[in-house]
């Protein structure tokens, strides 16, 4: 033997799992939704996605290299996810400069100020999205109509989201039953034929991604399922209490960014709890807050805010919700 034997503490083998594998697994799971958005929005979606991803990479690299003076770790794929999620969360005809600002806020403020991947408290893409939503409400809420693949970018017709339609209608004092015929059918919403942000419209594609991530064990079922179940149950109760003011659970599940949020945003490793029990509490919190904001808040859509609020509770959940220990006395 020409080289010296290695000595290290056990275990001596590793599963071969890496951060990259997990990150690119998530990216792969997002592809169906990306394809759907290309089909519905055409060129706009492609431009938005490319801009978001490229600027996220650029900002991460620049900040790591020149501000933190460290070894850039852009290969880990997390910037790609942030970029794609940011793109998924904006209208497909958003001006490019706004996207770049969103990427700067997402990476710069949402992630790097905390010390980079693993240390951020809030989901970076959501930080970027909410920043844009508050700063540029007009641009952020004029969604192009999903007309099928088109090469035009700015002159697309706009369409309100189903949730916004209802919120507006209810504000004017109209009854829900008279508004429902104007919103897309459940089937249309499931297949993405509605107004909305780039990646949130196609429920079917998002669910496909969920199954992929569950099969690959990238995420566990706890967070997405509890969020969806909580929203379904809670909005169902409201709907039963007053069917004229609150839409039914199926509509709530398919509308807005709920599926996108539950499947891809809330399940972000860094900003979600570590234990299964904690994940369930976190999921219930998000579901509950989403319905509250949608039903009683000023914004028609509440998923982003709900996730950000629950992100803030994650350290607390981690500190107090411990996994069940082996041999622990049951009360």
């Amino acid at each position: 033997m020409n080289t010296k034997v290695l000595v290290a503490p056990s275990p001596h083998v590793h599963s071969g799992d890496t951060i990259q594998k997990n990150m690119y697994g998530v990216v792969f799971a997002m592809l169906p939704a990306l394809v759907f958005s290309f089909v519905y929005f055409g060129m706009g979606a492609i431009i938005v996605t490319l801009t978001a991803v490229a600027s996220c990479y650029l900002f991460e690299y620049t900040i790591q290299k020149y501000l933190l003076k460290g070894e850039p770790t852009i290969n880990d794929g997390s910037a790609l996810i942030t970029g794609m999620l940011l793109a998924f969360n904006v209208p497909a005809n958003l001006p490019i400069w706004i996207i770049i600002i969103g990427a700067l806020v997402a990476i710069g403020i949402g992630k790097m100020t905390f010390g980079g991947l693993g240390n951020n408290v809030f989901n970076p893409a959501l930080v970027g999205r909410v920043f844009l939503l508050i700063s540029f409400p007009v641009q952020m809420t004029s969604w192009p109509k999903p007309l099928g693949f088109s090469t035009s970018y700015f002159d697309a017709e706009t369409a309100a989201t189903p949730l916004a339609l209802i919120k507006e209608g209810l504000k004017k004092g109209e009854a829900l039953s008279s508004l429902m015929p104007h919103v897309p059918s459940n089937m249309d919403m499931f297949l993405g034929n509605m107004g909305g942000s780039m990646g949130e419209i196609a429920g079917a594609a998002l669910i496909l991604g969920l199954f992929y991530m569950l099969a690959k064990k990238i995420i566990s079922w706890h967070i997405p399922i509890t969020i969806l179940a909580t929203v379904a149950i809670f909005s169902g109760i409201l709907h039963l209490a007053n069917p004229e003011a609150y839409a039914g659970p199926m509509f709530q599940l398919l509308s807005g960014g709920l599926l996108l949020g539950a499947i891809f945003m809330a399940t972000d490793y860094v900003t979600s709890p570590m234990s299964n029990k904690g994940m369930i509490i976190y999921g219930i919190g998000i579901g509950f807050l989403t319905v509250i904001i949608r039903a009683f808040g000023a914004y028609p859509e509440g998923v982003s805010f709900a996730i950000l609020i629950m992100n803030a509770f994650v350290p607390l959940i981690n500190a107090y919700i411990k996994p069940k220990r082996f041999g622990e006395k049951r009360k």
Binding site: D17, N22, G116, L117, G118, M274, P323, R325, F326, E328
Partner: peptide, 18 residues
């Protein structure tokens, strides 16, 4: 690398530790 807080260690620990 940095801990990405994925929680996989928690879910595989046979003693239910963190």
């Amino acid at each position: 690398k940095n801990c990405i807080r994925c929680g996989k260690c928690v879910s595989v620990c046979p003693m239910g530790l963190e």
